[in-house]
Design a protein around this nucleic acid. Structure first.
Lengths: 335, 335
DNA sequence: TTGAAAGCGCTAACAG
DNA sequence: CTGTTAGCGCTTTCAA
């Protein structure tokens, strides 16, 4: 039983399918009595429009796709909240949300190439994934609007933060508190996804310290795979140094939590013996009282959704904007 | 530029569109040389199948829909992980994931009714939402497979836990430790969504206590809107009682975190002066060292996805199974 | 203002 | 094995 079609409604209302279609799409050129008859037939039959057929006919889908790595990460969730918030409201409630999780680096290219077709989604939100010129070209060829979140490409609208500046903020915060020997725990720059934010944060951080006269000690930078436990191990190594750091800057809150845990296991008191500062300000940070560099994740997701929706409506291109989001330090109980 | 169609490929390969379609769908009745010619044409043209057209033609969508309230809740995320894990693998990688967030109770009915159509999704995963007979009937009428997670209905496959038993486990855990005066912090039974798990947990909990000879004191049950801070306030009230409880059972980990925070603010030491036990065992619980009743959220999501995929493949119905998941208590540092 | 007809891109009988 | 022919359900000229 495939449910009533537009023809059934037409027959019942004594009009043509075209007229029903017009009523359904709020076309102004339908006489009021006709509209009413059609509407009545729609109600009686419990008719609802078939989205697939409509999409095929008009040539675009009424869904927006979100491509994310680690759908599991708290920061991703936070951003998704912002996206959902925007999709669920106003005139855009019509767009559905398709989620594409990119768990392995090998899925990365595939997912993008797969999606670069207007028929599945009306636009793409690409989070935290580096994108190549060829991929952008593919999107352009198919006229598929896309916006980048936490990623950058000159030909795509994007919402970003200044990771280098974030590192500086962390450095300043710790310098003011008298720290001179400071460790860093973050992602390995050669990670399979090509993420660079951790490395950018580290650079900003170290440079700011050097400008303040603090010499860099390579032994204090510990890089490894992303993850709470991995970060814990890195921090443990740092704390076991003959001359351990008095503070640690972690490239993300998740990693900072790992650092905190390592300190606890080694009986190092925070913040007295070790200050810890993270990055992101996810929910968790507030819960554990972590001092961190806050980036407006949720707002970023919402903004990106708005940008995408606007690009879809606008159709044509225009110069891609870059929205830079403000970073602030949120002081809590770990520094 | 709408990209090459199946006809373009057909022309180029010197065959009919039907043959191209057969090749695309791995039909066995195509001669190898023909298949190769078609494949070559596909590659040269960079052709990719239009999902919308295919869906319209075969009459079903290649996506599964997930309907969730509070997309924001950690437990929901955890379950989604399980779902994504299953969708991303094996022969089912072909299914996309559509997310339908139900933020307000008023969206509840709408979302479901809207989705009860084969044309947008091939099946539905409904999480934590009570579902009415009428809604089930609508799903059946449209032959739309659906499975319930953390919800129940006799005519739908479902994965559930025994919340009452969970409450009992919490009671047993606290009784063994000598607690007699125990508070409960949970959701109000008359919540707008119709959630009942909190209340079920409370009942199992109180009944177990009574069976052990501990009389119930209504003043020790504090119910309010779901949320960390709300739970904190409820707990604060409990702790300010002339005769405060020595332990608190929270209906969820999120609420337990609120309780912990309240204790901290009131300088009540955990677990010495106050034992706290939560429910769910989300990531957070491990991080803060919360003792809790563990329900396998991720596995539940995965299982539900498998059930749904199976139902979709099977087509017809069969007797809906109920998968009951095991509950265990995970002892950490708050009891 | 409404209807007829063609078509979106693909699949699925049915012949051959 | 492969091609022809009809749709799937909706939109959209083009006429009337």
């Amino acid at each position: 039983m495939r449910g009533p079609t537009i023809r059934d409604v037409a027959r019942r209302a004594g009009v043509s399918a075209a007229t029903v279609s017009r009523v359904l799409n709020d076309s102004p050129l339908v006489l009021e009595p006709t509209r009413e008859r059609v509407q009545a037939a729609v109600d009686e039959l419990g008719y609802r429009l078939n989205a697939t057929a409509r999409n095929l006919s008009i040539g675009r889908a009424m869904a927006i796709g979100v491509v994310v790595p680690f759908f599991t990460a708290p920061s991703v969730i936070e951003r998704l909240r912002g996206v959902v918030e925007r999709l669920g409201r106003g005139e855009h409630r019509e767009y559905d949300l398709m989620l594409f999780d990119v768990e392995g680096p090998e899925q990365r290219g595939g997912a993008l190439r797969d999606l670069a077709r207007r028929d599945r989604v009306a636009g793409l939100l690409i989070m935290s994934l580096p994108i190549s010129d060829a991929e952008v070209a593919a999107l352009e060829r198919d006229e598929l609007p896309a916006v980048l979140v936490d990623g950058t490409h000159p030909r795509l609208p994007r919402v970003v933060i200044d990771n280098v500046r974030g590192g500086e903020l962390a450095a300043e915060h710790l310098l003011v508190r008298g720290h001179r020997r400071i460790g860093f725990v973050g992602d390995h720059p050669a990670n399979p996804y090509g993420f660079t934010s951790s490395e950018d944060r580290r650079r900003g951080f170290r440079n700011a310290l050097e400008r303040a006269g603090v010499e860099s000690d390579p032994a204090l930078d510990r890089l490894g795979p992303h993850g709470r436990e991995e970060a814990g191990e890195l921090a443990a190594a740092l704390l076991s140094l003959p001359e351990p750091p008095t503070a640690i800057f972690a490239a993300s809150d998740l990693q900072a939590i790992g650092v905190l845990r390592a300190a606890e296991l080694l009986n190092v008191r925070v913040p007295d013996e070790l200050a810890v500062i993270g990055f992101d300000d996810v929910d968790l940070a507030e819960i554990v009282g972590l001092t961190t560099i806050r980036q407006p994740l949720r707002e970023g997701g919402a903004l990106a959704a708005d940008l995408l929706l606007a690009a879809i409506d606008r159709g044509g291109s225009g110069v891609p904007v870059e929205e830079q989001q403000a970073l602030t330090v949120v002081e809590r109980r770990t520094t």
